[in-house]
Design a protein around this nucleic acid. Sequence first.
DNA 1: CGATGGCCTTGATATAGGTCAAACGGAAGC
DNA 2: GCTTCCGTTTGACCTATATCAAGGCCATCG
Lengths: 252, 252
Amino acid sequence: MENHHVPPGSPLDRGHPHVACSSCSLRELCLPAGIDARDMERVDSLVNHRRKLRRGEHLYRAGAPLVSLYAIRSGTMKSCVLHEDGREQVAGFHMMGDLLGLDAIGGGRHMCDTVALEDCEVCEIPFSGLEQLSRELPPLQHQLHRIMSREIVRDYGVMLLLGSMKAEERLAAFLLNLSQRFATRGYSASEFNLRMTREEIGSYLGLKLETISRVLSRFQQDGVIEVHHKHLRISDAERLRAILGQAPTSDG
Amino acid sequence: MENHHVPPGSPLDRGHPHVACSSCSLRELCLPAGIDARDMERVDSLVNHRRKLRRGEHLYRAGAPLVSLYAIRSGTMKSCVLHEDGREQVAGFHMMGDLLGLDAIGGGRHMCDTVALEDCEVCEIPFSGLEQLSRELPPLQHQLHRIMSREIVRDYGVMLLLGSMKAEERLAAFLLNLSQRFATRGYSASEFNLRMTREEIGSYLGLKLETISRVLSRFQQDGVIEVHHKHLRISDAERLRAILGQAPTSDG
DNA sequence: CGATGGCCTTGATATAGGTCAAACGGAAGC
DNA sequence: GCTTCCGTTTGACCTATATCAAGGCCATCG
């Protein structure tokens, strides 16, 4: 009923009791990207523990001390920043290959809550061991830096979205971003399930759930997408890009 | 051309005591925080070039290849993300001690424009040299990680602001943040000059310049602040904090 | 000195999106 | 199979902020 587009060899393809980075299909997306076979053993021995989370379970909460970073093997999660008065802002949605916990390095404590949106499996990466190993393996060091930098760039993109786009543009940007991330991971770019509620999408995009619902309906009426509850199909990616204001892609 | 393992204060120290990290008053805020005296020499020799910018000059533009990171010695800068259609979003304001260019590590190219809001001086830190040295100096490595992580956390705060706060809350948050950063640098927390225009503040906060102007006027009428053009004095920081912490209509 | 131009302020009006309300649909449980 | 509940859709109305417009202030420059 879920995850029906499982590529062969993906971590969702269970049956490997002891899965190492070296044999993980996500390795080129994830922390060990660019590590050669010999050094990969050392990464394997660093990432020696995995953890399963049920839907709704927290991976960590704001205030918890930093112990490990986490790489998602399977499932989808969200990170939320909290305001004292209870308001919460979804700061990001994460999927397989993403590295979580970067917010905690600065102060030694996590600064947001990270919650599973569906059953998930994550690899635990003890942070002090990671710093140590990355001193010895320059490609690992560089990849860690790249991942942190890309998170900063992603955040800038969200600021652009929240600060200067209208509702339709925000949603178009969101759908295209999801699409692209699924494609990068070997899934369909044009058809996927939304793992989050309208309310969570709204929080991420700085809009109310009713607005998300209305804009999705409008897109559907215009023939740009087809939505049925959580299932979404992008019928006209070009038009979505036009809504966003992007130049059409030359290569498709 | 200078600072080649020259101990600060030695006769070879060219008579610019403030030139080297080791004798820079910002060192505990900046990249070399936590580096001990002996290792500091190596940082000094890495950071061997400085650059002055006039008001309005670009430090780098989106698309430029990553060469160096930059630490601000003096002055204020802004970073802007650009949308093809010309819209621009201010993603951050930077002041002395801040480290710039982190956005470029992920893709090897800068992803935003960074511009001097007033005459500035920056220290250039060649990135490849920094990665190399940080492999040898764990405290340097750790500080780099902390700085990147804190930038991510700052970005999450901006998302919270843009995604779920009203105009008055955003401006209160902005003023308190500026105040705190001035205080950290040894300046008055309650009285300072705004180096940016109303329009730039508006861009950062996802509001129009007229709204910034109106809210500032309202704050002034309420006796929370006094503004005269660029000069700002916080008369009642407590009330500002209260504005920031207000829950939206929960009761009725 | 007076003119110029960039910023800022303030008012009047418009509107995108929020809020409130009602009803619907699948999924899970009885 | 029926009920309940959560998430969603849709409609009607409201409000915070944008937009448009006019004028003011200060620094700069001729």
